[in-house]
Design a protein around this nucleic acid. Structure first.
Lengths: 201, 201
DNA sequence: TAGTTTCATAGACTATAGTCTGTATATTAG
DNA sequence: CTAATATACAGACTATAGTCTATGAAACTA
């Protein structure tokens, strides 16, 4: 069966993608050059930039796999947990995943790309699923009386994810001695205490 | 009076520095090239990299001016405030300063540079003064019984600064519609509620 | 003072992300 | 079927941060 041009293009894209991801995982994002990816995949700059808008772009694609993680997380989460327990186990699982499966180097690139102006960064796209999960946690907590009805759900989602981003940023800045799991759990625990306090007001 | 070599070098450094800062403020950090700085200041790459280790470096220098801000802040802060009030007014003043005096563009560069591996970034140096201020706030709060004696001071300092970094990072990512002052105050307020809660345990 | 060393600077060079242009082939139109 | 068009790709080219080497003058030494 003859391949159409589109099929061929898709194959090229996938081939470049897989080559790049492999190289990233072997040598670390910053150690891999576009020339190297192009050479290794026996393609060209033209092909590379035809399919991806930047070197960041290629693993933001990869990064979207995090949605699988969230998917799995929601299906395996026990039902009878309190709001605080749920958020903490989300953070626990997420940080483990980011640290062990994606790694510091890739995460550093994600956080760098977030700072590049007018880059369509993943924080404004791919975190949607995370936002949805937290949204549902919060709404359930309000219904169950764990959180005040006066709480602003959207804002609270941002705050909680900010705790995550803050801990992750610190991990990337302070390096290996920084215990990401410990730090993020300790931090969010205090924040949640503050949040839950509001139900009494 | 004849200039010594060292004096001459210092003048060159200062001249490059001032030229660069002016350019940064006019065009924004990322829009200024090293070549341009060198050309404008009528010096050379050699001179530039002799005095500064990188383009980031040159304004991390500038960034150290933030110490003046902290200095001034501590001298003008009213004495009879509660712990929470003190931290919130610190954050309020600091965010105003960062937003209005340093600007988003420069801050973005600071946060980027924090993510560059083995770069001697300002978070591990220049924030010392901020850490000290918070340290003293916390210790006073413990002495006054506002905070539990069991609290880990060092850790709490990191947590509070993490709230700042988190809010700032979000500001840089989400852009102009993000109200830095509002957001950081709302966020820290909840965190501090959680922190203060601990005194009862 | 004459020779030697150090150091600030100049600017050519390198590394690398990203752009631009040309081309060959697939696809479409008549 | 032939001509026109679109597009996937190749690779030369550009922009820019940072390195390396050479040089001349200042500072030191004897």
């Amino acid at each position: 069966m003859k391949k159409t041009r589109k099929q061929q293009a898709q194959e090229t894209k996938k081939h470049i993608y897989l080559t790049a991801i492999t190289l990233f995982q072997t040598k670390g994002f910053d150690q891999v050059t576009v020339d190297e990816i192009v050479q290794e995949s026996k393609s060209s700059k033209g092909a590379f930039y035809g399919h991806f808008t930047s070197k960041y772009d290629i693993f933001l694609e990869k990064f979207k796999e995090i949605d699988h993680f969230y998917e799995e997380f929601t299906t395996t989460l026990p039902v009878n947990l309190s709001f605080k327990e749920k958020v903490i186990s989300l953070i626990d699982a997420q940080m483990k995943y980011l640290k062990d499966d994606l790694g510091m180097d890739l995460m550093r690139s994600v956080y760098k790309s977030g700072l590049i102006e007018d880059e369509r960064n993943f924080f404004s796209n791919s975190e949607r699923k995370l936002y949805k999960i937290l949204h549902s946690f919060i709404q359930k907590a309000i219904k169950d009386g764990e959180l005040s009805v006066q709480i602003n759900v959207q804002e609270t989602v941002i705050y909680i994810t900010r705790c995550m981003r803050g801990s992750l940023y610190d991990w990337l800045v302070f390096g290996k001695d920084f215990d990401l799991l410990q730090e993020s759990k300790g931090f969010i625990a205090i924040f949640l205490d503050g949040l839950l306090l509001n139900k009494k007001n």
